[in-house]
Structure formats: structure tokens, C-alpha cells
């Protein structure tokens, strides 16, 4: 299969600190790929290396078949984690400016900037200065600046952070739209629901090291099943469920894992007696659970081996 991005044994150090360690990864063309990990895990550093803003200390990166993103800059779109705009520029101008920097000619860039902004509900803002916009609008403008030149590979660092539900939906639509056009989208996120809903593939990095990578099905495969429970009542009682190994209570929803050999039917009976059950499901763990468990296991391993990275 043709890959939009390949990383092989990539390592990046800042002084004595290792930000990314021996990372290998393949991102197939035309998919949506989620980068998961805690803050400071190494996601942004990985992305910056992909964008040739940093150079890896070891390993190789191939972007759209080229060893250096610098050669294919104009075919990439990049939305950094910390988003900024020129306050004094007008929205249409700045979107067009990003397009021109990507090699679009002047009139095409200007025209397309206005088209995109209008399509995404900023038609009234074309000739207004960026400083007058709300955060959500500013972020939308930035994303449009990222995709104005129809890049083949788009990398979005935390595209959903700080957005309200409506703007999250807009962002989701933009991402899905790009996939439909056959483009490859990589985004990093802390929101497991978004990753679950959108991504064909995910990878997780923790303390510089890759923990898992693959399609959602592959990632879930082989993990113990758990109870997905929607309920009303006092959630504290759930902790007393006989045979429960792990209870993640969210107030109205809980994810419960049983000790091996325990029967979920038994658990259901007990639950019906103690809370009002609205939904009961026995299935693969959520991405959220996988994420939390991976962090715990990795930290435990690190503690056991001395904890040095």
C-alpha cells in the first residue's frame, strides 16, 4: 500500500531530554489518522519533524515519498498546536496569503480564500481584521489557511481544542470532506470520542515511546471486554459490585471491567437491584479506557525498570 507518511526509527533529543524515541509509523494514503498521547508525550515534536521544522537525530522520515518535507512543502497543510494570526490583516487576505506562500497564484488564492470563508459561514468577515474575531472564528480561519491550496497531506495539531460543539462539528466536516476528496489527514487530539468517531487509524505515544498503532479494530482487538452502563442513581454503589476489577464512573455512564471468570449476567442482575439501568452493553473497551490503561501500564513498567527514559 502507498503511504503518505513513513517514519522509521525516528529519535529526537533536546539536550539530555528525549522527546521522541525510536518511533516507526506508517500512515496510508487517504485515511484519517489520529495521534494520541498525553501533553508532552512527543506528538508535537513528531509533527514538527514531519514538517521539517525540526530534524530528527536518528531515523528517517518519508513524506509523500520524499525524504525531506521541505521538498513537498507546497503539497502539505499544517495547523500548529498554538494558533496565531496577524491581528491587523483582514481574514480574506490572511487566508489568501497562506495560499500564496504555498505557491498559489495571486488571483486564484484571493478568489479561493473568499469562497472558502463564505462556505464556512464567515462571509460577513471577509474584509474585517482578524483581531475582531472570536477564538473559534480565528481557528476556523486558520484551518482554511491550512487547506486553501488543496494539500495532499494535512496535519492538524489539536484542531478541536477550545472549540464549541458547533465549531467542532464544522471542524469534523472539514476533516471528513478532505478524506472524501482522497486527501490524508493526520490530527492529534486529547478527545478520545473524536478519535473514535473520525479515525481510520490511531497511534499512541507515551513518554516519547510508541505504545500502539493500527486501525481502531486492531487496537481494540484482544483487549478484555467490559460493561458499558448508562444508569441513574448513586454511582458510589458501583464500586461495591461483586467481582468488579475496575470501575470508571462518569456519573450517568460507567465502564466496568470484571475479574476474569466473572459472569456479566450476574453483574447485570446486581446492577438492576442497585441503580436504574438505562442501557447495558458488553463489548470492547472504549478508546478512553485503552488510553488510560496504556498510560498506567507504561508507567508501571517504567517504575519497575528504574523509570529512566
Amino acid at each position: 500500500m502507498d503511504h503518505a507518511l513513513t517514519l522509521h526509527g525516528v529519535t529526537k533529543r533536546f539536550g539530555s531530554f528525549t522527546a521522541v524515541s525510536d518511533l516507526s509509523l506508517e500512515v496510508p494514503k487517504g485515511c484519517i489518522y489520529g495521534f494520541l498521547g498525553q501533553n508532552g508525550a512527543g506528538k508535537t515534536t513528531t509533527i514538527r519533524m514531519v514538517m521539517s521544522i525540526f530534524h530528527p537525530d536518528a531515523g528517517t522520515i518519508s513524506v509523500l515519498g520524499h525524504p525531506d518535507a521541505g521538498e513537498v512543502k507546497d503539497r502539505l497543510g499544517y495547523l500548529p498546536e498554538e494558533k496565531g494570526l496577524y491581528k491587523k490583516m483582514k481574514t480574506a487576505e490572511i487566508v489568501a496569503y497562506f495560499g500564496k506562500l504555498k505557491g498559489m497564484d495571486r488571483s486564484t488564492a484571493n478568489q479561493r480564500a473568499r469562497e472558502l470563508l463564505t462556505r464556512f459561514g464567515l462571509g460577513d468577515w471577509l474584509d474585517k481584521k482578524c483581531e475582531a474575531m472570536s477564538k473559534g472564528m480565528g481557528q476556523k480561519v486558520q484551518v482554511l489557511g491550512t487547506i486553501i491550496h488543496d494539500p495532499e497531506l494535512v496535519i492538524l495539531d489539536e484542531p478541536f481544542s477550545g472549540l464549541d460543539p458547533v465549531n467542532r462539528d464544522t471542524m469534523r466536516d472539514i476533516i471528513l470532506d478532505m478524506k472524501r476528496q482522497g486527501r490524508t489527514v493526520i490530527f492529534s487530539t486529547h478527545g478520545m470520542e473524536q478519535a473514535e468517531q473520525l479515525c481510520d487509524f490511531v497511534m499512541m505515544i507515551h513518554k516519547a515511546k510508541l505504545q500502539f498503532a493500527g486501525s481502531l479494530a486492531q487496537v481494540r482487538q484482544g483487549r478484555d471486554l467490559g460493561i458499558q452502563l448508562d444508569y441513574d442513581g448513586d454511582g458510589r454503589v458501583l464500586q461495591q459490585l461483586p467481582g468488579a476489577r475496575r470501575v470508571n464512573d462518569h456519573g450517568k455512564h460507567a465502564e466496568i471491567f470484571l475479574q476474569s471468570g466473572q459472569d456479566p449476567q450476574q453483574a447485570l442482575r446486581w446492577l438492576v437491584d442497585h441503580v436504574r439501568v438505562r442501557r447495558f452493553d458488553y463489548r470492547e473497551p472504549s478508546l478512553h479506557e485503552i488510553f488510560v490503561r496504556t498510560v498506567e501500564e507504561a508507567d508501571a513498567r517504567l517504575a519497575a525498570t528504574g523509570g529512566l527514559r
Binding site: 514538527r48 514538517m51 521544522i53 521541505g70 512543502k73 507546497d74 502539505l76 499544517y78 495547523l79 500548529p80 498554538e82 494558533k83 496565531g84 494570526l85 496577524y86 491581528k87 497562506f98 506562500l101 504555498k102 486558520q142 489557511g145 491550512t146
Partner: peptide
């Protein structure tokens, strides 16, 4: 200013 409002990273993804 460019550095503190982080626009620099977007620019660097397009120009050297």
C-alpha cells in the same frame, strides 16, 4: 510579536 503569537510555525511550514 510573530514569535509570541505563534504564527511563526505556520510560516515555517511554508517557507524556510
Amino acid at each position: 510579536e510573530e514569535k509570541s503569537n505563534r504564527i511563526i510555525e505556520v510560516l515555517l511550514s511554508s517557507v524556510s
